[in-house]
Design a protein around this nucleic acid. Structure first.
Lengths: 289, 289
DNA sequence: GCAATCCTGTAACAAACATTACAGAATTTC
DNA sequence: GAAATTCTGTAATGTTTGTTACAGGATTGC
């Protein structure tokens, strides 16, 4: 990671001219906000002219004010999104592992920022038995789509997991229309096939719900529901844990909406299972809900 | 202190028009940075027109975009200058939902009770490239096995996801022996086929690792590694979130153990991907690791 | 002490921006 | 089903912005 600009400026104060130093002090006093306004505002705060600010910025190695602001924004975004900076507020590190702390924090942060109405609204829509629910995921998120489909099938009819060879996905677009809901799991790298599937489904009148990461899959442009999750962890991998938490909350929400029907379907499934393989009753080692 | 704009927007999502909601999502997904650029940048990120952004901002009660930005800056400055303000928001239940609190608590509790040695020992074993790793899950946990396999394949060779028709599982027992590791995801109701597979693999000399719930699958009797997870949530369903957290920590652990080889394999995969479909590079919307 | 060089602010200018006007599409109401 | 209303994007426009050119003052070197 590149060195913070603030430190760079601080170390180079002596090489600046008098007015450049004024600019530097003004920036350091209110870093990085002072540099995120206009050249004129920064100049006024520093008590120098606009061209002086540009010379100061050029001295720092930026070809223009826009590049300078880009750098400040980038640093600020990292600061706002950096859990390591905030993890100091969580004295308990479960298992003493920063990775685990981050996993927990991701789930917590995800739901802190998710609009409650989006979750309940989507759960209500998914509970509507007049609709057919399709779930699609990519290379890493197909398991989530599969997991959610496995649960939803138990509490409601007409659940389709879009899986198998991607060449066959187009076949499953046939007949999709206003009575369909498409739940899309898409995290970076965003997959062209998923985007195309979602866009085609939307064109045909389906409602699209997106469960994605913080950088927002392009599917977000056509989705009616967008549920972004925190995925950054101290690891080369992104974490899908928060996406799975969203899936679980939606599953619970649908089950709650259709409580009576869900119980009927679960009892029926139980009866089926006991008829086909009575020995499964013996597998109950722990308490059952 | 005035109420944060973010909360205001979140609570008012239902009253927005479709395009205003898109603007709201774009802002919430990258708050407050998305609102601190130009109208055109914000519009592009939201997938709407510039005038729509201005209507959205007007709907929030601001006479113009400048006033809106003023508000965002003010909030941001408060946030940057007041770390204590940040820490007081953490004790709140994320989303105020007991289900979400329990999900977070399950992950935290799971790792608090997991022996660290079990995790690192299993990660080390899974990183051993002389071994072949098999992953098997049941009706609800196959997605986890698939997820873990998809990641492990990238950082190490000889990874087999035992999937498809259960009748075919026996075929995959052929050849399993001392050089194999079988990772089993099994939560109640425990599946007879999984138990039988694991028992047969153990008889043939394979090392068995079990990721299960607190009531302990019968596979625990013959497993060398047992990792129990908290699954109880206020819902008719059990939660698999903590099992997925275990999977992610193992994935990260294996990647860390094989850091150099993992990086080589990832680079090679990147090269393959760019050769087969160069357009995937364009899909990078957010920062990449 | 003077010439050369550097620093700095003012003014001008091209580009970018926020905003408004307008028209077509979509939705709602009767 | 048609009229009224609302939503939305495109185009145009006035304003603001970043940047450059230029000139005067300050500093440095001979």
């Amino acid at each position: 990671m590149e060195r913070p600009l603030l430190e760079d400026i601080r170390d180079r104060l002596e090489e600046f001219t008098a007015t450049e130093r004024k600019a530097a002090h003004a920036l350091l006093a209110n870093y990085p906000m002072q540099g995120l306004g206009t050249v004129a505002q920064f100049a006024e705060a520093a008590g120098v002219s606009s061209p002086t600010i540009l010379r100061f910025v050029a001295r720092l190695g930026f070809p223009g004010f826009a590049e300078f602001q880009k750098k400040l924004r980038s640093e600020l975004e990292s600061q706002l999104n950096s859990p390591l900076a905030r993890s100091t507020t969580l004295p308990d590190e479960p298992g003493g592992d920063p990775l685990v702390s981050q996993l927990v924090e991701n789930v917590r942060e995800t739901f802190s920022h998710l609009p409650k109405g989006e979750l309940t609204g989507l759960a209500r829509l998914l509970a509507d038995e007049r609709k057919t629910v399709h779930l699609i995921g990519g290379r890493f998120t197909d398991g989530l789509a599969r997991y959610m489909a496995a649960h939803l099938r138990i509490v409601r009819p007409n659940v389709n997991h879009v899986a198998g060879q991607q060449g066959n996905w187009l076949d499953q677009l046939i007949g999709i229309g206003h009575k369909d809901v498409v739940v899309v799991f898409d995290i970076r790298r965003y997959q062209t096939e998923i985007i195309q599937f979602a866009e085609a489904a939307a064109r045909q009148g389906a409602t699209v719900a997106l469960i994605t990461d913080s950088w927002m899959s392009p599917v977000g442009r056509i989705a009616s529901f967008v549920l972004p999750a925190r995925v950054a962890v101290p690891s080369p991998w992104d974490s899908s844990l928060a996406l799975m938490a969203i899936a679980e909350v939606l599953i619970a929400g649908v089950t709650r909406e259709n409580q009576q029907r869900a119980q009927e379907r679960m009892r029926f499934l139980e009866t089926l299972r006991n008829e086909i393989d009575p020995s499964t009753e013996e597998r109950r080692n722990g308490p059952d809900i």
